[in-house]
Design a protein around this nucleic acid. Structure first.
Lengths: 220, 220
DNA sequence: TTGAACATAAACTGTCCAGTTCAGTTTTTT
DNA sequence: AAAAAACTGAACTGGACAGTTTATGTTCAA
């Protein structure tokens, strides 16, 4: 992705970023930007704040990134990737369906409720109007991957005769929603503090209960 | 709400707004602001746009509202109220639990997916950092009321022996989440167009199925 | 019909901030 | 060590925009 407009393709084989140029202090810039964007949002973050935080001159920043928007997109992309990467990993590790779902749900939910997870969510939602591509980027690298993995897991359960699901896509959409019950919106709006692990566990247990009550194959 | 800080309580009995002053063109201002805020978001909307849209002078606007933030808060408050008012109304009208849930869910969900509903959601989420009170205002007048009504409905079902629920608050949180499955986030991020009624009905049916499978009392 | 309250247009102030420029310094390469 | 490339800091530009002021016009109640 982001390959489209890349006229000057400096390093052929391993171009992790395009459009943006690299240099010695590239990572400093990215780290500073990440910190400030996550703290203040897109509008709230000034480029001067970022260069101060990054310990870099403004000219350097602008030698890497053509504008603030692209810098933000880069940061957001990285956050989104790290999200789904450590949030799901291997769900299929157990053949006890309930246990596997519970474990995956806990990891996922703890990320949803983390400071970074919430702030990414806030910014993406708030800016998705202004930057439509950021909404897609986020969706593809987060929710869509969760959906795909869950879908595959559920299909396996069906094939093994453990689950009974007519509409797997719907089910794969329902489960993550159930995991948010009551907590997520309140957190996003800043109406409560981080739930304890016990609280999350209770919600997850409820989610798995409801989910499996419907979809677990009746053993007779 | 918003009564707390009202030092100068001009009209005693019927003070629909406080802090803000009234005048002939008050509604014009509010309508224009509503339109522009809903189109462009808080940051994206300039006061000059609003007065142009409202057909009113800037000075007039500032004679009603001390600043842009309060104007936005007023508009948001009105939107939030209208939200829950037409979104839920009377759920308890039927004693067929499945039918009542389905009907209420359809109304609720259609609002979630409407342009206004989505835009309010986007703006509130995006600005809840900057204006913490707006998050609470929104939550109280929307989701919290849904929760309360649903809670009451479920309790009635339990009392009547139709439902069997250990944790009613959790259940009342789960149901609205189930109704969003797959659709809401995609809509918020602008990744798909408004779902057809049929599509919404399918999701709702799935939500009610899952929900009642767990919580409907087994009749034997 | 007069005067008080309301409204107007337009220019103005002050601030904030993205992005640029450039002369000079440091680092890397050869 | 010399040349090339990367980086710096600080000042500057230009534009956007919230909020104010002023001088003038309109409405309506008494």
């Amino acid at each position: 992705m982001f390959k489209e407009l890349n006229g000057t393709d400096e390093d052929d084989m391993n171009a992790p970023q395009a459009i943006v140029k690299h240099g010695r202090k590239f990572d400093q810039v990215l780290d500073g930007a990440r910190k400030v964007f996550m703290r203040d949002g897109f509008e709230g973050a000034s480029v001067d704040d970022i260069v101060r935080e990054a310990g870099v001159s403004k000219a350097t920043l602008y030698s890497y990134f053509p504008d603030k928007r692209l810098l933000f997109l880069e940061v957001a992309k990285i956050e989104c990737q790290s999200q789904s990467d450590d949030a799901i990993a291997e769900i299929a590790s157990s053949d006890d369906v309930r246990y596997a779902l519970t474990t995956a749900a806990k990891r996922m939910t703890r990320f949803f409720m983390s400071d970074v997870g919430l702030q990414v969510h806030r910014i993406i939602v708030g800016e998705s109007q202004r930057f439509p591509e950021i909404g897609r980027e986020f969706y593809e690298s987060g929710p869509a991957r969760v959906h795909a993995i869950l879908r595959q897991f559920l299909q396996k359960g069906v094939d093994a005769g453990k689950l009974e699901i007519e509409d797997i896509d719907l089910a794969a959409d329902q489960f993550p929603e159930l995991c948010k019950a009551g907590l997520h919106l309140k957190m996003v709006l800043g109406l409560r503090d981080t739930p304890s692990d016990a609280e999350i566990d209770r919600v997850i247990e409820g989610a798995v209960d409801v989910f499996l009550c419907k979809y677990e194959r009746r053993h007779r």
